[in-house]
C-alpha cells in the first residue's frame, strides 16, 4: 500500500504540490491525471523517493520514506518499477544490457539465468530479437517497450508509468495501453499511471485521481469520473479549453 499525507513541494516561488493526500491499495490500477505542468510527474517521483517533499510524508506499506537517506531508499525501490516519460534507457548500452542491468547489479543470478530473464521480459513487451540494438536505433514506441522490459525484469510489486503514451501515435499508444493492462493482470502488480491521455485512463485504470492546483481534486472510479458533471473534471475529460487557458 502506498500512502501520501499532506505532501507539499515547491521549486523556487512555484508551489507544485500543495498538500496532496492519496492512498493506493495493493493490486489496484490507478491513473493520476491533471494539466500539463500540474505536478503529476513530480508526485510520481515522490512515491518512489526520487524526490522528497518539503512537508508531508510518503508511506510504503506503513514505512515513512520521505526522510530516508539515498542508500536506505535503495531497498525500498527494489519493490518498484518505473517507466520514465522518455524511457531513460542508458544510451551507452544495448537494449539487452539495459534490461539486464538491474539483475547484474543484484549479483544473485548467473549470466545464463540473466539472459533467460531478459529474453522473457523482451518477449512480454513484444520486443523479441532487439537485444543487440542501441536505444538510438529504436522508435519512440520501441523505446518505451524496452524501458518497460527493464522495469519489469526484476519482478517488482508496483509499476509506475510516467506518461507512457506521450509523443506516440494513436495506434502505438493503444498498443502500449494494452501492454500495460496485460502486464498488470499477468504480473498482478499495483499499477500507477500518470497521464493526460483519457483513452489510456479508460483502458487501464480502475480508479482515477485528478491533480488540480497542487491538490487531489477528484478521486473516483473511472466510469464515475467520465460521467462527472463537475466543471473542472468535465472540462478536462472532454478537453474543453476556456479563454483563460489560451494565456497558459
Amino acid at each position: 500500500m502506498i500512502e501520501a499525507r499532506g505532501i507539499k513541494k515547491r521549486f523556487g516561488a512555484q508551489h507544485v504540490l500543495n498538500g496532496v493526500d492519496l492512498r493506493i491499495d495493493d493490486g489496484e490500477a490507478v491513473a493520476i491525471i491533471g494539466r500539463s505542468g500540474g505536478g503529476k510527474s513530480i508526485l510520481l517521483k515522490h512515491l518512489i523517493g526520487l524526490l522528497s517533499p518539503d512537508e508531508g510524508e510518503v508511506l510504503i506499506r506503513g514505512l515513512p520514506i520521505a526522510h530516508l537517506s539515498e542508500r536506505q531508499l535503495l531497498d525500498v525501490r527494489k519493490e518498484f518499477g518505473l517507466l520514465f516519460q522518455s524511457a531513460a534507457l542508458f544510451d551507452s548500452m544495448t537494449v539487452h544490457e539495459n534490461v539486464a542491468f538491474p539483475l547484474r547489479r543484484d549479483r544473485q543470478l548467473t549470466s545464463a539465468e540473466i539472459g533467460m530473464r531478459v529474453d522473457e521480459a523482451l518477449a512480454m513487451v513484444d520486443l523479441p530479437g532487439t537485444g543487440a540494438k542501441r536505444p538510438a536505433e529504436l522508435s519512440g514506441g520501441m523505446r518505451k517497450r524496452a524501458g518497460l522490459a527493464r522495469a519489469i525484469v526484476y519482478r517488482p510489486k508496483v509499476l509506475l508509468y510516467d506518461e507512457p503514451t506521450t509523443g506516440l501515435d494513436p495506434i502505438v499508444s493503444d498498443s502500449i495501453d494494452q501492454l500495460i493492462k496485460r502486464l498488470c493482470e499477468q504480473l498482478r502488480t499495483t499499477t500507477v499511471v500518470v497521464t493526460h491521455d483519457m483513452r489510456s485512463v479508460r483502458a487501464i485504470a480502475q480508479r482515477v485521481l485528478m491533480l488540480h492546483e497542487g491538490k487531489i481534486y477528484a478521486n473516483a472510479a473511472t466510469s464515475d469520473l467520465f460521467a462527472s458533471t463537475d466543471p473542472v473534471v468535465s472540462a478536462f475529460v472532454k478537453g474543453v479549453s476556456t479563454p483563460k487557458d489560451l494565456l497558459l
Binding site: 539515498e70 525501490r77 538491474p102
Partner: peptide, 8 residues
Amino acid sequence: DALRALAT
C-alpha cells in the same frame, strides 16, 4: 534518476 529507480 533511472539508475536510482533501479536501486543503484
